[in-house]
Design a protein around this nucleic acid. Sequence first.
DNA 1: TGTACATCAGTGAACGCGCGTTCACTGATGTAC
DNA 2: TGTACATCAGTGAACGCGCGTTCACTGATGTAC
Lengths: 204, 204
Amino acid sequence: MSKSTHHHGDLREALILAGLALMEEGGPEALTLRKCAARAGVSHAAPAYHFNGLVSLKAAIVARGYRIFTQTMKDHRAQAGPDPRAQLVAICKGYLAFSASHAALFRFMFQDFGDLLPRINASVLKELELESTRAYQVLSEACAPFEPPSGQAHSTEVLVWSLVHGYAMLFGGDKNASTPAGVVPDFARILPDFPLASNNSAKR
Amino acid sequence: MSKSTHHHGDLREALILAGLALMEEGGPEALTLRKCAARAGVSHAAPAYHFNGLVSLKAAIVARGYRIFTQTMKDHRAQAGPDPRAQLVAICKGYLAFSASHAALFRFMFQDFGDLLPRINASVLKELELESTRAYQVLSEACAPFEPPSGQAHSTEVLVWSLVHGYAMLFGGDKNASTPAGVVPDFARILPDFPLASNNSAKR
DNA sequence: TGTACATCAGTGAACGCGCGTTCACTGATGTAC
DNA sequence: TGTACATCAGTGAACGCGCGTTCACTGATGTAC
């Protein structure tokens, strides 16, 4: 343990990791500058110095969330076969795996940032846009083979994204693991019934 | 304007309406005891007396949200024809209409209440459960004609609910009205392609 | 190689703010007789 | 019908708390010569 109090080394990384941990433990309410600082072992004024305020720290944490999200989907895809349908199913399973393993963060990421956007540090905002676009692209690519060749653009993408996102929100976490009326069918039993137009060699 | 300062008359209703207004104007962060009280024109200690703390006031507001939600779906259903498919589409449009007209409230309703549940006033909790169950039943009934007769129970329900909920969350509000890649297809152009097994006289 | 100095990352005390809660109170309402 | 009294809804001042922000500072690092 270094005696030096100044020059943390990688304060930014430490703050983001602290924020991710706090988010999972106490939800979005627990994400404050002071708690992040305490968890990272620095003065409570340090995060306000590194980022320009709480908003940018939150954005940096969300950006990191998207990076993990993307990686989770890619990991699942890598374990599936080359068949486009299997690839798409794997991506969706990765989507659900992330939403379950990072439940609070997942909801936080898809929050409405609205008024806060203009207050985000320019470089952090750029990073956030990059990471969220990358996550989106993974899903988009997996849907591409199923887009109707001459129909409404992105309709499969919107269909699949809506379905998997809604399922994740409603049934994905530990809570609300059932409808008021009973047990929820496993997602894998729903997805294969999709009417995905295949303009490729996708098999059932 | 009555001079009497005590005995508001219907403080409960006034507080709930104040809360609904605050929610739409400033999001969930704006929902505090003091702001609700100020908006309802009462002392800031009044809401803490009427409900036993902020948590139960929030729950009462969510319960009211579900009541409006149910009514919105029913209103849309009433304007559709008797065909089961038309009814289901109408319910979904009602779902989306509510999520758009009460964007912040909608997200707040589907929040994870988790740790807060035990702290809700018993009668308010009962009301919340009643209203949310009623909303759920409207959707459930509309899906019933399409449930596969011998398949997995509630699979159509889960499918439709996930799809419409995900669409509402991702594209329903004013914000994020498009995918990163472009324009979002209208929901009505997606839903009719559903592979809904009809054990009824539902027509396309 | 060694010294002087500028830069910069992080400190810690202090500030004001809005919050939920508490509590002795007040004044209107309802009830007993 | 009228009076006494209990109940109860809402008041308003006070409290402590955690928060984000500010600012003069300090000590480590990097650079010029």
